[in-house]
Write a protein that binds this DNA or RNA. Structure first.
Lengths: 235, 235
DNA sequence: TAGAATACCTACTCATGAGTATGATTGAGG
DNA sequence: CCTCAATCATACTCATGAGTAGGTATTCTA
């Protein structure tokens, strides 16, 4: 039943791994390498890092485990690569914004939108959930550095916004934690609820961050009838 | 070297597990059971669920593995118990608030404050990170139900707040996700940065949620000099 | 077209860790 | 004091999964 490579081109029968680069041996190392990373990301996303074996990933690619090891040195390195693929767009967002002249709040919003999309991407889970606990000290340090850079970038934009008056005065550290946390958490529920695109979610979140819960309309606030509807804990 | 129980009362030498109920065999099953749960929570919190073996937990309690199994049926059940210990205060917060007459935003804030404290507690990690992927279908469903109840409770408070005018009109679902996400994420960084108490963090977050980033002072907004400081990605 | 490099597979090793079988020890009640 | 149940330890089993040894087939290059 493992006669995959028997018939040279399996015709239009696209196998599970859509457009797998593994039909006939070609020398496209990089393409295959990236396919391995993506397959790993999908698996991690679905089952979690520890519940995914390299056999699973190999099976998803219709390939044997040593083949995976031929393209990747470790399970740990595999996670790390997924992490990198996840953060890169965020770093790009910072670079893009850094030449703009807009007020800092707008620049921050742009970064947060890209951030949200990245978290909702197929590498989002890996980026957000790459735990230091699962990695060697060296990797752990590396990941922490990258995460810290992003955190510091957000704090900086917040500070700048407070300076230029586009952001309400606040504690940059706590605010950065709140914003990033809300966005990071997307990775936890987006899997199950894909009713919106990543971009739509990011936009909605930015709107919420900007406005806050307290009404801005200077009209009657909390003077209407209490409307005592229960805040029951059941559905 | 394992002559722990040799000398009847080891005097004031309080062993690693502070105030361990395991000196001399007593019939306080519940106390010991809870001690196991707490030890597990601490271990999970430090090293993650999958990187914690039951031998680790047993060692932390200066006890053997079968002893742990004597008080707990499974590793999975152990995680579940930690989860329950984590959510309970949140459920209590909902119950407490449900008889109050305050505007919904204030009731929501009260819940969120308790929520934040719970996440920063020693069971916070377990509550937030109890993954369906690590659990049997039955447990998974149970946990999902409890999580969903909390989510629905928050949404309800938001809807009520929009109704009674105490909350700016918004999408309850997205807003609930954003708020809960920001708070859940506390579990990820609080371990490393305990410069504030859980209550302080929760209070700070509620302030951020309420106000939003856009300045409320009707004065000149974003009209000041741009102050072009770089939003560099490095520290 | 030979040989070298590349790509891939079968079939292992080996460590770890969940869970258990079995038996010893201790406290409580009669 | 004696018995029984509760409590705990030693020393296993057994499955899983990371990583590898060693060989085979294919493609490229000269």
């Amino acid at each position: 039943m493992n006669s995959r490579r028997a018939s040279p081109p399996p015709a239009g029968k696209s196998p599970a791994a859509s457009a797998s680069p593994w039909r006939a041996r070609r020398r496209d190392r990089e393409v295959k390498r990236e396919a391995v990373i993506r397959a790993a990301a999908r698996a991690f996303n679905r089952k979690g890092y520890h519940n995914t074996s390299l056999d699973d990933i190999a099976a998803a690619l219709e390939v044997s485990k040593p083949t995976v090891y031929y393209y990747v040195t470790n399970k740990e390195h595999l996670l790390f690569q997924c992490f990198l693929a996840g953060v890169e767009p965020i770093r790009a967002a910072f670079r893009e914004v850094q030449d703009q002249q807009a007020p800092a709040r707008e620049r921050l919003n742009a970064v947060l939108r890209h951030y949200g999309e990245a978290v909702a991407s197929e590498f989002g889970w890996c980026m957000v959930r790459a735990e230091d606990q699962d990695l060697s000290p060296a990797m752990s340090r590396h990941i922490k550095t990258l995460k810290s850079e992003i955190d510091q970038g957000i704090r900086r934009l917040i500070r700048d916004g407070v300076q230029d008056g586009s952001i309400e005065p606040c504690d940059p550290k706590m605010t950065a934690f709140a914003l990033a946390g809300a966005l990071n958490w997307i990775a936890h529920w987006y899997r199950e609820d894909q009713s919106l695109t990543g971009a739509e979610i990011a936009a909605a979140f930015v709107t919420i961050f900007e406005g806050g819960l307290r009404p801005r309309s200077a009209s009657q606030v909390a003077t209407r009838a209490p409307l005592r509807r229960r805040a029951r804990i059941s559905r």
